[in-house]
Amino acid sequence: MKKTLMLAGCLVAANTAFAADKPVLTVYAPDYFTSEWGPGPAIEAGFEAQCGCDLRFVAGDVLPRILLEGEATEADVAIGLNTDVSARARASGLFAPHGEDLSRLTMPVTWEDETFLPFDWSEVAFVYDRTRLATPPRSFAELLDAPADAYKIAIQDPRASTSGLALLLWVKHIYGDKAGEAWAKLAPKVLTVTQDWSQSYGLFTDGEADMVLSFTTSPAYHLIAEGDDTKVAAIFPEGHYFYAELAAQLKGSKHPELAQAFMDYILSDDFQGMIATANWSYPVIEKPGFLPEGFAALPRPQTSYFYPEAEAEALRGPALEEWRANFGK
């Protein structure tokens, strides 16, 4: 036993010595990112194969941590930020421009942000099981007007979850001043409001909820990883709210050229070609072969929309109050 421990100690020491020769690029990422089911391991392997560096993920609450650390943060790059926190992140002044050519992006909305670079995207949508739900809603209006017992939906709390916030903005975008009425109509069909996406999705796969607030790309997981084509995203003619995941480099990075190389890597074919099945969402630059067959054939909304950051920030507070007031549960 002692020998094994000593051996292990030597190995660890050797490993660190080996790694010490190379510069370390520290990337802050959310928890799900670095687990073996997240996109982290593939990104780490892909980037290390070309950078001559050691990419080290630090998993946890990305933005809260950076904001608390301030200028002294060890992060060179932050990945896995959401559109709803970019305003706060920007206001901190800790992030540097990504310097990428945004005209290469093939997303359904125009992206002009010079600091926060999207690396994948999707739209929020209601996902159902076509074997369990005979008459799914064909539009947002139909969803609202359906009788209270037509279906039970699991959604996420806009105060705690980014997809929940996306729904809030989605409703606001379609219904504007009448958003309050829309919430009052939706409320009886909502089974419950969960803290995060995975709890809602668990309720859906368990059969507790008939529909779940998720993403247009969710059926791809079931189709490709499980060979199950029964999960469908309801595509509404009113359009869907766009949802992107972002990365940014930090001003105070000790390895600015490596950080820049990582930003370049995000838009490379290598990264964009694998992100679809690594993170179950669309690549920001789509080329033939980047999506597996069934994934590419998924129905897509006619229109996607997205509030510019400042507008979304301004809408958030009043829209939350509207939600609280009208979601009479």
Partner: peptide, 12 residues
């Protein structure tokens, strides 16, 4: 946390 990661990546 591993349980949450599994749920977060559809592996119910």
């Amino acid at each position: 946390l591993a349980l949450y990661s599994l749920m977060g990546s559809y592996r119910m």
